[in-house]
Amino acid sequence: MPPSPMPPDAAAARAVVPWRARVGGGLRVLLPAVALAIMLGVIFHLQPRAMSYVGLRLLLNFALPLMFAAMAQLCVIAASDIDLGLGPFIGLVNVLSARLLVEQPAAGTAALALCVLAYAGMGAFIAARRLPSIVVTLGASFVWLGFALLILPTPGGSSPAWLAALVRLRPPLVPLPVVFAAGLAVLGHVLFMRSSYGVVLRGMGGAPQAVARAGWSLLVGRAVLYGLAGVFGVCAGLLLTGLNTTGDANFGTPYTLLSIAAVIVGGGEFVGGVVAPTGAVLGAFIMLLTGSLLSFMNVSTDWQLGVQGVILIVVLGLRAVQRRAAR
């Protein structure tokens, strides 16, 4: 079979997409946007002082690592895989940057590059041996945690000065996390939704046979997706170090669930390569603000994990109900 030609132009391709699917695509990002607006509204109502430059900064600072973690998870979910080792990986980067990057910047940079390569290699390995991503990434989580403990057995270290300075930047008018979010959303959107290779990447999870028949390598595609996940994961770990100004092998742990939840709440699906980069960034804010919302409502933060789990269940449950109704 000859390789199928790409559509002549995007407009023609869009014309054949039924209107309902197109509206659905828009809803994918609209719903998390509305949810985030409501959450912010409630928070501003409960705590009017949050509605300021400084207030927003404090409220949203920890969205910095989370939005990059969400983007990393999105890369893996685009392949219809899942990464259960992302949290420990971010912990490893946190430890690497708090120790090695401070003491030996060159060696630290090389180690971080190696981390990204290891992730790309993991993707290639999963593709080559057709392994279930869930077991491989869980096994890898032990490897990341092990290396993190080797480098830093007990919490400590400090942040490289440039990282600490970066997260303390005060851009005019809008706080840093919002600037980063806008930039990351545009980057993710261009990468996955606008570039032609983005179609191939999403095809890895949506229609791998079609992608392979069109002449693209599934092995390279998975390696690229996992490599991108590694890059975003490293960014998340670095920002975490900048914010915490210290290293701890266990700091990354919560990011596994949070990143998955952010992608799903933001409109992504577990199978079929259906992802929404802008939604994932919004999802990161939503997951982060659950914590703030609980504390403003005087609910113990003990329940934060549970509330995040329930949000995930509710979103997925609603989606299933919607799908059944559509049928």
């Binding site: 899942i82 869930i134 669930l257 998955i260 799903i264 577990f270 199978v271 113990s300 003990d302 329940w303 934060q304 994990l305 549970g306 509330v307 995040q308 789990g309 329930v310 995930l312 269940i313 997925l316 449950g317 299933a320 109900v321 799908r323 059944r324």
Partner: peptide
């Protein structure tokens, strides 16, 4: 969650696990 709400087992059990973990944290105090 899996049969009634059609949530993929991996995420259903993961999310249910986090709710239980939250209960344990709250109870263990």
């Amino acid at each position: 969650l899996i049969r009634g709400l059609n949530i993929p087992p991996m995420i259903a059990t993961l999310a249910a696990g986090f709710v239980m973990q939250s209960m344990t944290i709250a109870y263990s105090r």
